[in-house]
Amino acid sequence: MLELDSESHSNQSSETGSQAGTACVKSCDESVPSRDGDRKQNGKMNGGTAKKTRGAKPKPHESKLYDNLVPAYQALWPAVARRRILHNVNSLNIAAGTKVLEVGVGTGLSLDAYPRHADITGVDLSESMLSEAEDLIEQRGWDHISVQPMNAEKLTFEDASFDLVTSFHTISVVSHPERMMRELVRVCRPGGKILVINHFRSPNPLIARVVDSAGSLTRHLGWRTDLNVDELLNELPIQVMRCQKSNPLSLFRVLIAERKA
């Protein structure tokens, strides 16, 4: 149901930065916090888009850091990475009826990249960010999109549930990136596509050492700089179609893979 656009290998944005995606910041063995009866007072959350009561204060995320980052995230995100995401999603030529899962959807600022003729599900562990995504979905009238809280390292969907699985600037903020990557592959159908945009450790030893030196600081901010893409993809049932930077100066790589049978 998806095709790769041959032009997706060129003319990409060189903006840098990172999304404070929060699909999972704790071990996947920890459960998603209670939501007062699945938010019966505020509308549906699990299995659809909740209608948030205006003025109601959303429950805090397990990490208060990300709740506090929501305003800055919304202000900085368009300038940091949005154009790169729009370009790469558009390059996939998503067909009508395609079932798409975005893991680490955050406040939903990448959701307008998807065509209205697709069926979009977004998941994130931060309910504060999902609350903002719900408002955006309601404001735009996006009846083809729903969001729900979920742990990226332990997705509750059945195997092979989606035609396309995406994740942007999220896998480097989870506790166990390899578990998250296995989950992305598991819920993707054979022949389906996986699109990940993220910072990965440079294969250049000098650059890698320089970036690694900032690791102690970035870990306090919730993300890691030493994620090795080869180790992440090791022994997974996928065929990597593309894994490269949009340009030599970019900090991020675009990974496009196809799930094998």
Rank of each mutant, 00 (worst) to 15 (best):
G48R: 05
S250G: 05
P71C: 03
I238H: 03
P248F: 10
A152I: 02
A118N: 05
L69P: 00
H144E: 09
A118S: 15
V187L: 02
D36N: 11
D159S: 11
G222H: 03
T170H: 02
H169W: 12
K57L: 02
A20G: 09
E7Y: 13
Q239M: 07
G222D: 00
M181N: 02
P205E: 00
H9E: 10
Q239N: 14
L101S: 12
S202F: 06
R83T: 06
D36G: 06
S250L: 04
E138I: 08
Q244V: 08
R182N: 06
A56C: 08
T16R: 11
M129K: 11
H117L: 05
T225W: 05
Q12T: 14
N247W: 12
V147A: 06
R253H: 12
E15I: 13
H9V: 10
G47C: 02
R84P: 01
A261D: 09
P203N: 04
S18R: 14
F200W: 15
S31Q: 13
L217R: 15
K154C: 07
R54K: 15
E127T: 12
E235F: 08
V185S: 08
A113M: 03
T170R: 03
I145R: 07
L2R: 09
A96M: 07
G17W: 13
L155C: 07
K59Y: 09
R253N: 13
N42W: 14
K260G: 07
W77Q: 14
D36M: 12
R253T: 09
S172R: 14
H220V: 07
R253G: 03
R189H: 04
R140C: 05
Q239I: 08
D119A: 08
K52R: 11
G222A: 01
R182F: 00
T121Q: 01
Q139G: 08
H144A: 03
V80T: 14
V32M: 14
R140F: 02
I94G: 06
D226L: 06
E134Q: 07
G192A: 06
T121W: 01
A20D: 02
S126T: 00
A118H: 02
M180W: 02
S126P: 00
F162P: 04
V240D: 02
I207T: 12
R224P: 03
G222N: 02
I171D: 01
P115G: 08
T156A: 13
Y66W: 07
R201Q: 14
E7V: 06
R35N: 08
S110N: 15
E138P: 05
S18L: 09
T107K: 03
S175G: 05
A50E: 07
M129C: 00
N198C: 10
G122N: 10
E183I: 04
A56P: 03
V211W: 11
L111G: 04
E183V: 05
T170S: 05
E158K: 15
R35V: 07
